[in-house]
């Protein structure tokens, strides 16, 4: 501390005499010493005060009191600034961790859309934040000629939702072989999720199994928004109603399943509530809107339909969608 004072006094007394830019520059370089020795802000004030008192021997007492006051303020200020900085560091650490987690999630939950001759499949899944609370899972069993589709929406966002999603994916991967019934798969998924999640957390899921040979889709729902079915012969949509409780609410839940046969140019649209729960717009209205848009572009390939619908809804909501957004279209 002694050497610091001597150096400081030298620079300061130079400056009051010559007021040169170079001396100011030296003053700023002096800061390096302060940082190296980890000098607190109040000590810097004290060094200045001692230097001033040594340079000007006849200072009024009141000035000395003023320095006391400044030191007092700086002790508190230094303490609070440090607290504030560690908050910022913490925030930054969280941000980095979040980014890593998001990257891992993207790798883990990456969905590949299978290509099969008998069915045109399109998908879009856009997260509102870094992590997607929606998840789409396909499995095509070439030997058995079954395609299974799971569309899930985890309530809650961010990291907890992502963890829950990974669990769901693991569950799906162990369950999906051959032609398990959707009702059975939902029942097991519910058990897995109910055992491992928090009270306020749950998942809605649509699960379908498409028999490529018979063109029959067998589907079940766990609290999921009804899928839309377009009947091309009648040029009309209808809801694929199928009741079932959300996954993760109760331990033992039974699910039902239904069948529908797809004819040429028929398609099925599975969406998450980010598509139908538009703010300031009734669900019925937004479902009608969705039907209108889909109807107007029904001749396009499934993937293009998904993308067009997304763009159109985004435009209608002033590019301000509020939830993860997922559409899957299965078109014969």
């Amino acid at each position: 501390m002694e050497q610091l004072l001597i150096d400081y006094k030298q620079i300061l007394s130079d400056y009051v005499v010559n007021r040169k830019e170079e001396t100011l520059y030296n003053g700023q370089n002096y800061v390096r010493q302060l940082i190296q020795k980890n000098v607190a802000p109040e000590d810097v004030i004290n060094i200045h005060r001692k230097a001033v008192e040594e340079i000007y021997t006849e200072l009024p007492d009141s000035l000395s009191h003023a320095y006391d006051f400044l030191i007092e303020v700086m002790v508190q200020y230094g303490m609070k600034t440090r607290e504030h900085q560690s908050l910022l560091i913490q925030k930054e650490e969280l941000r980095i961790e979040m980014e890593i987690a998001a990257r891992i999630q993207n790798i883990l939950l990456n969905t590949t859309v299978p290509k099969i001759d008998q069915l045109d499949i399109g998908m879009i899944s856009e997260p509102i934040r870094k992590m997607n609370g929606d998840y789409v899972h396909f499995l095509f069993d070439e030997e058995e000629d079954y395609l299974s589709i799971a569309v899930a929406d985890v309530v809650g966002k961010g990291v907890p939702a992502a963890l829950c999603m990974s669990m769901l994916k693991n569950g799906l991967e162990t369950l999906e072989y051959g032609n398990n019934d959707p009702s059975y798969i939902l029942q097991v998924l519910n058990r897995i999720i109910e055992k491992s999640v928090d009270d306020g957390m749950f998942v809605s899921s649509f699960y379908g199994r498409y028999d490529v040979n018979s063109s029959i889709l067998t589907y079940g729902s766990a609290g999921h928004e009804p899928a839309l079915y377009f009947n091309s012969k009648e040029n009309a949509f209808c809801d694929l109603e199928c009741k079932g409780l959300l996954l993760g609410v109760m331990p033992e839940v039974k699910y039902s399943q239904s069948n529908i046969r797809l004819e040429e140019n028929d398609f099925i649209m599975i969406v998450t509530d980010g598509v139908t729960e538009l703010r300031d717009c009734d669900v019925i209205d937004s479902r009608n809107l969705l039907k209108e848009i889909a109807f107007s572009i029904r001749h396009l390939p499934a993937q293009e339909m998904c993308e067009k619908i997304y763009l159109e809804l985004q435009r209608l909501q002033d590019y301000n969608l509020e939830d993860d957004f997922t559409i899957v279209i299965l078109k014969k």
Partner: peptide
């Protein structure tokens, strides 16, 4: 929205 639903499910449990 569904976040609100989550709050009620938690209370129900």
């Amino acid at each position: 929205d569904s976040t609100g639903l989550g709050v009620f499910v938690a209370l129900y449990k």
